[in-house]
């Protein structure tokens, strides 16, 4: 599933069947290479939904068990919030120090949150190559030499 497809997806509570918010963004932990939380807007309860609280990340809605699953970010997630750790639209450097392009989208597994691929100018780069996301660039492992 792509970041671009799932932004603005509604978040529905399965116990009350009400829409409790919308996905506004993704929090990525580059060390784990996975989405650890989504940021939420239009919710009364908070602005962050940690990945383990998500019951299902479906094509039409994100489901959660209780409305108060949405809360404020815990320490680990808060450290990864903000522009400095954003992935989208950031330039991509290889570990060899070459600019590869810009992140146009991210493909993730809706079951686990694992990053499957980072799309660099539209071309997929295997998520396993992701090394770091920092203030200057997203760093990916350099492709092995193709002779």
């Amino acid at each position: 599933m792509l970041f671009s497809d799932s932004r603005k997806r509604k978040i529905v509570c399965t116990s009350t069947a009400e829409t409790v918010g919308r996905v506004s963004g993704f929090v990525v932990d580059p060390a784990l290479r996975r989405v650890v939380a989504v940021t939420v807007k239009k919710s009364q309860d908070g602005d962050t939904l940690a990945w383990p609280q998500i019951s299902g990340f479906g094509p039409d809605a994100v489901t959660i068990a209780a409305p108060d699953d949405i809360g404020s970010a815990d320490e680990a997630v808060a450290a990864l919030l903000g522009k400095r750790h954003a992935v989208l639209r950031k330039q991509v450097l290889s570990s060899d120090g070459d600019r590869l392009g810009e992140v146009t989208d991210v493909d993730f597994d809706p079951e686990t949150g694992a990053i499957e691929a980072v799309l660099v100018d539209g071309a997929p780069v295997d998520g396993a190559r992701l090394i770091g996301v920092g203030s200057f660039a997203v760093v990916v492992k350099a492709a092995p030499d193709t002779p």
Binding site: P30, K90, L93, S95, G97, I131, G132, V133, G134, S135, F136, A137, V138, V139
Partner: peptide, 10 residues
């Protein structure tokens, strides 16, 4: 030329 860490910070 920027000096960049593997974590992506200059």
């Amino acid at each position: 030329r920027p000096v960049v860490t593997m974590a992506g910070d200059d």
